[in-house]
Design a protein around this nucleic acid. Sequence first.
DNA 1: CTAGTGATCCGCT
DNA 2: GCGGATCACTAGA
Length: 192
Amino acid sequence: LSRIAKIDFRAPSERVARQLIGAMLLVDGVGGRIVETEAYDREDPASHSFAGPTVRNASMFGPPGRIYVYRSYGIHWCLNLVCREPGHGAGVLIRAIEPLAGIETMRTRRGLAGSAGVDTRLLCAGPGRVGQALGLGPQHDGLPVDRSPFELLPAAEPAGILVGPRIGITKATDQPWRFGLAGSRFLSRPFR
DNA sequence: CTAGTGATCCGCT
DNA sequence: GCGGATCACTAGA
């Protein structure tokens, strides 16, 4: 039996973002394998923490290993895991998950009930879809990821991790801080 | 395949 | 007022 190291959320977000690829993430037993992440950091113009602590991003400046949930475009709830030491302001955005547990629940939440048998590819392909499928909302902001309703099971480092520029941002677009599981068909978008 | 658009909220300037 | 760490849908090449 190989023992799998626990993820150290005090590490830089770029490293945590890599370690999270392949890890199993469940919320109330619903979720799957993380296949796509993005790292954000304090001195990073694309990060919510760039301008310093506010009411909205308070969780990003809290203890590592906790959840930061934010509203995107007034519509979606997006999931981050806080990194570095308390007060630093770093995090990892979960961009896509391979659905493995509670697939019918995810279908219902995504408005795809009754389409059993239909491809699961789009259930969690994108940060907004992840939030919707996992039933995330402001009630989860600030909660520790190692306690109910969350379960995070680290994986051995996958054979191939894809790297590329982050998606949907206008600043620091040259930073290669997007990571993906090589060969996965559950990515939000392909890597070049 | 790419490009455009509407939905809908709230933090920040 | 502006503009997002987005998505779904449409039109057209």
